[in-house]
Amino acid sequence: MSQISTGLPEDVDTTPDASRAWVAISPALDPSIEIVVCIPSFRRPQHLRQTLESLAGQCTGRRFAVVIVENDALRTESVPVAAEFLASGKFPGLCVVEPRQGNCHAINAAFETALATFPAATDFLMIDDDEIASPDWLELMVSAAETTGADVVGGPVLPNFDDALKRGLRRHPAFAPAYDSSGPVPVIYGCGNCLIRRPVFARVGAPAFDLRFNFLGGGDTDFFYRCRRLGMGFHWVSEATINETVPQSRTSLSWLITRGLRIGAINYHVQRKATPTAWSRIRLGLKLFAALPLSLTYAVRAFLAERKPSIAMHPMTVAVGGALAAIGIEPQPYKASKIVS
């Protein structure tokens, strides 16, 4: 495929990566489309089907395309589902296989492919392959970007628990939305429900999502904090909801503990990148270890407020996760058992 001009500076590489195979494409792919929805996918074909159905049912008059990234080059379970929807004409788009496994590889592949394939696109949204968009999601997100001029727009991801008995976890920090109401916000933390304007990618540079977060997760948190340090504006749209399917395996006590440890590790690495001097790094280390006894106080407050031990323990697991990361110990939940290099 020939290289497509993106309108970005020459030092930002958004050309299609030669290692990424284009495995499905809609009959009519119009490069003048201005809105692209990006979907990284890994071993969840049935969930991906629900995600694509929710996009096909969007209540909007705006034209949009979809870029699906299959990140399991061994099984490619998402490809038949993607090909079916793209052939149906419900929306235009394409599906590529990113052979380098990992969260950041998949997301970078989605955005880079979208930037290169749709040079007129101004708005790039993302939804995960285990999420379902509300019918007016796309319209609300794009309208907010246009009316506010924000560089990044975010919205809530609401959990749908497979185990109805775990609904009380909706208030757990692992599942609760970052904000309650619409308006300008300091930063957003996750890319599972976001819109990023095209100039953002040029300013942040490539790769957009730092590969150091590839198996830990948190590349989105790092990305948005880099945007914040560059002075970009964020807006939250509480009505632009997405529902996330939460299996039983992600409501167990062990998963919640690992989640807290991972958040602590992510926080450490994000802060570590912003500490260029030896002294600032020493201060960061002292801060992390000082947070350990303080986290007990926060845990007591959380227990008195929520009366749920799983919620109360979260501040402690985050603090422990940050301290462990500082000495090189951290979970790697996005590292699959079989990786295709």
Rank of each mutant, 00 (worst) to 15 (best):
E244S: 10
Y334H: 14
A265P: 04
P276V: 15
F118Y: 14
D72I: 07
Q101P: 00
K287M: 00
C194A: 12
A208Q: 04
T147N: 02
N160C: 12
A109H: 02
F234E: 12
I39S: 07
V36Y: 07
I339H: 04
G205S: 09
Y268P: 00
W279S: 11
I4Y: 05
G89R: 11
S238L: 00
P92Q: 09
S254D: 12
Y334M: 13
S238K: 04
G154D: 09
I339W: 01
S134Q: 07
S26H: 01
L195W: 05
S341K: 13
V23F: 07
T221M: 08
P315C: 09
R301Y: 03
V187A: 06
A87V: 03
R203Q: 14
P315I: 12
G149P: 03
T258R: 01
G168H: 14
S54G: 06
S143W: 08
L158S: 12
G322K: 02
W279N: 10
E131S: 14
P135Y: 09
K308I: 11
F213W: 02
D128S: 12
A65V: 11
L74F: 08
W236L: 08
A174R: 05
F215P: 00
A150S: 11
T117A: 13
A278E: 09
Q271S: 15
A114Q: 04
A323T: 11
